[in-house]
Design a protein around this nucleic acid. Structure first.
Lengths: 189, 189
DNA sequence: CCTCTTGGCTAATGGGATTAGCTTCGAAGA
DNA sequence: TCTTCGAAGCTAATCCCATTAGCCAAGAGG
């Protein structure tokens, strides 16, 4: 390797780090290049321009959060699993705001060879399976859960909750709301 | 040539229209200027650069959606009001995706002289008042509702719901979920 | 008719993305 | 060890957009 020893993985990793620090929106090739000590055009040997880099960061984020959720859910079931997973979800977003913002743009390039080793939606689906929800409602349940978790985290990270009331408590109540609703949807009443 | 007869309001309106058509992210002064038939720098006489323009569009969006929600809620109460408002919320986002995206960035410049004639959060709060929720839970309830509505609409607009299941039905179920939860939170049990 | 404010313009600067084409590192093989 | 070749990184050049500076004319008020 000629000097810097870059690899696609290294570039993407640095980009992800930068996204977390400065925001996914302001991610730029120039910034990544500076951080890696190379000239901007050099990056084109490893990633497919800015759009490609953003896509890679998103992909990294999806797999990352999927792994987190899985780790949180393993060994639990029902409401307990839901609580743990919801917690992990929010914690991931806080820890990696840039990656989290990035992965929201994934659907655009969906259908591609996305190759998820850890799909967050699959984990949520598995968690919901512990609620005995009739099959024809499963998709709706997953959508509802994703909406609630994402909406809360998104508003929170944008500074949308201005009042002094404890945000953790709000989140806990949201999660308990889901527990209640999903119980009410269960086949057994 | 005071020919073009621009005003701040006109510029912002065109910017909002463009945001809805091409996406708030790709809004640019150059595009707005072209659309209005003037040179880019001319816009600086009316708005405070690109950041200022984005802020104005966001402000427009907040007031817009606030007015929509208010119109939907008036004359109704309780679950009925909640359903109507939730519907209006989603409909607004679909009709004006650019403005909707813009208003999510409002919190950043909050505290300013924001002067909302129609504050969407206030409307939601009023709607929730019909559920007899204890005062100390009100803020949490509003946060939960905002999270659910925003999260759903956001995921939907990003193409996050890929499966063929009816999205309208999913949304209806989410709203009914809120009805159930808020009922359970009501002081009267 | 004169003047002053003000909206719109052109020119110029700076930054980021992207492309083209050059150079040199470093490994594989004679 | 010497040669060759592919790939990594670089510089130069182009394009697009935001922003600033400074010019000019139009229209209201006297």
């Amino acid at each position: 390797m000629s000097r810097a020893g870059l690899t696609p993985a290294l570039v993407v990793q640095e980009a992800a780090r930068l996204s977390d620090e400065r925001g996914f929106d302001s991610l730029s090739l120039a910034m990544v290049a500076a951080r890696l000590g190379v000239a901007t055009p050099s990056l084109y040997k490893h990633v497919d321009g800015l759009p490609g880099l953003r896509r890679e960061v998103a992909l990294l984020g999806v797999n990352d959060i999927g792994a987190c959720l899985q780790r949180a859910a393993v060994g639990r079931s029902g409401p307990d699993a839901l609580r743990a997973t919801a917690d992990a979800y929010r914690r991931y977003a806080h820890a990696h705001p840039g990656r989290y913002a990035a992965l929201q743009q994934m659907p655009r390039w969906a259908g591609a060879e996305v190759e998820l080793s850890h799909d967050p939606v699959t984990v949520l689906a598995a968690v919901l399976r512990g609620f005995d929800i009739p099959e024809e409602r499963m998709v709706h349940a997953i959508r509802a859960l994703r909406s609630g978790l994402h909406g809360f985290v998104d508003l929170e990270m944008r500074g949308g909750f201005g009042l002094p009331e404890d945000v953790n408590e709000s989140y806990a109540l949201v999660v308990e709301g889901f527990v209640r609703v999903f119980r009410s949807w269960s086949a057994s009443g």
